[in-house]
C-alpha cells in the first residue's frame, strides 16, 4: 500500500470502531472485544502517524508547523498515544470511553480547518516551533484535565449515590483524579502562558517583515481570552483553601469546554488570521 493513500478517514474509522467496541463492554464484558478495541486504536494511531509523517514530508515542515489541520491532528495523536500508554500501564482502567470521543472530535474537526502551510514560519523557524509546542502541549494538558474532570464527576456521582462500580467503568480514585487534575492545570497554564509570550515575541519579530502580524484580530483576542480563563482557574487552584474536588472538576470542565469551543469556532470560521495562510 502506498503511504500517500492513508487518509484521515482511515484512522477516523479505526478510532470509531475502537470506541464502539469499548462501548460494547457496558453490555457484555469480553476480553476479545477489549483487545480488539486496543488493536483498532493502535492501528488507527499507526495510520495517523504515517499520515502526519507523509504530510510533514510533503510540506517540508514538522507537523506542528505544517498547518492548522496538522496541528489539530497532532493534538488527537497525543491523546490517543496517551490512552494507549495508560492501557499498557493498567488495562482495567476505562479511559477509552473518554479519550476516544475527544480524539474523534479533533480528527473530525481537522476536516474543516485550513490544511495550508503557515506562511509565517519563515520569520523564525525556531520560535515558531517553540511557540507551537507550548500551545499544543498546553492545550493537550487542558484537554486531559477535561477528561480527568469528567471522570472525577462520574466517580463522585457514583460514590455519593452509593452505586456499585460498573465493571466496564473502572475509574481512578477521587484522590488521584483530583491530584492529576490539579497538576495538569498547574502545568498546562504556564505552557499556555509561554505560548502567549512566544506568540507576542514572534509578532514583534514580524513587525519588520513582509507579513507583519497585527494583534488586533479575532484570533488573538480569542486566544487571549482562553489564556485569561485558564489563568484564573490556575490562580484559584493555587489560592483556594476550601475547594472541594468536585468544584475543581466542574470549573475545569467549564474552562476546558470554553477553550475547546473557542478554538474550534475560530478555526471553523477561518478567523485565525495569525496561523492561517489567508489573511482576514
Amino acid at each position: 500500500m502506498q503511504l500517500q493513500n492513508v487518509t484521515i478517514l482511515c484512522f477516523f474509522a479505526s478510532y470509531t470502531g475502537a470506541l464502539i467496541l469499548e462501548l460494547t463492554q457496558f453490555l457484555r464484558q469480553s476480553r476479545v472485544l477489549l483487545w480488539s478495541s486496543i488493536a483498532l486504536t493502535a492501528a488507527g494511531l499507526f495510520a495517523q502517524t504515517i499520515y502526519l509523517v507523509e504530510r510533514s514530508r510533503q510540506t517540508e515542515l514538522p507537523p506542528l508547523l505544517a498547518s492548522t489541520q496538522d496541528w489539530v491532528l497532532v493534538s488527537a495523536w497525543l491523546a490517543v498515544a496517551f490512552y494507549l500508554g495508560i492501557k499498557a500501564w493498567d488495562r482495567s482502567l476505562s479511559m477509552g470511553v473518554f479519550v476516544l470521543p475527544l480524539a474523534l472530535l479533533l480528527v473530525a474537526s481537522s476536516r474543516y480547518v485550513s490544511d495550508q502551510p503557515n506562511p509565517r514560519v519563515a520569520i523564525s523557524y525556531q520560535w515558531s516551533m517553540v511557540h507551537a509546542s507550548f500551545w499544543v502541549f498546553g492545550i493537550f494538558g487542558v484537554l486531559l484535565a477535561l477528561v480527568i474532570s469528567v471522570m472525577y464527576l462520574l466517580q463522585h456521582n457514583r460514590l455519593k449515590h452509593k452505586k456499585a462500580e460498573l465493571p466496564a467503568l473502572h475509574l481512578l480514585s477521587l484522590e488521584r483524579l483530583n491530584r492529576l487534575n490539579w497538576w495538569l492545570i498547574v502545568t498546562s497554564v504556564p505552557l499556555l502562558t509561554l505560548g502567549m509570550i512566544t506568540g507576542l515575541w514572534m509578532s514583534y519579530l514580524s513587525a519588520g517583515s513582509e507579513q507583519p502580524v497585527s494583534l488586533i484580530n479575532v484570533a488573538f483576542v480569542a486566544n487571549a481570552l482562553i489564556w485569561i480563563a485558564m489563568t484564573f482557574l490556575f490562580g484559584w487552584l493555587l489560592v483556594a483553601k476550601n475547594a472541594t474536588g468536585r468544584l475543581v472538576a466542574w470549573r475545569t470542565v467549564l474552562a476546558c469546554l470554553f477553550l475547546l469551543v473557542t478554538l474550534l469556532t475560530i478555526k471553523f470560521l477561518s478567523a485565525d488570521s495569525i496561523h492561517a495562510r489567508d489573511l482576514v
Binding site: S173, E175, R176
Partner: peptide, 10 residues
C-alpha cells in the same frame, strides 16, 4: 474495596 478505594488512592 468498592467505595474506600474509589475515594482514596492509598
Amino acid at each position: 474495596g468498592d467505595f474506600g478505594k474509589s475515594i482514596f488512592d492509598r
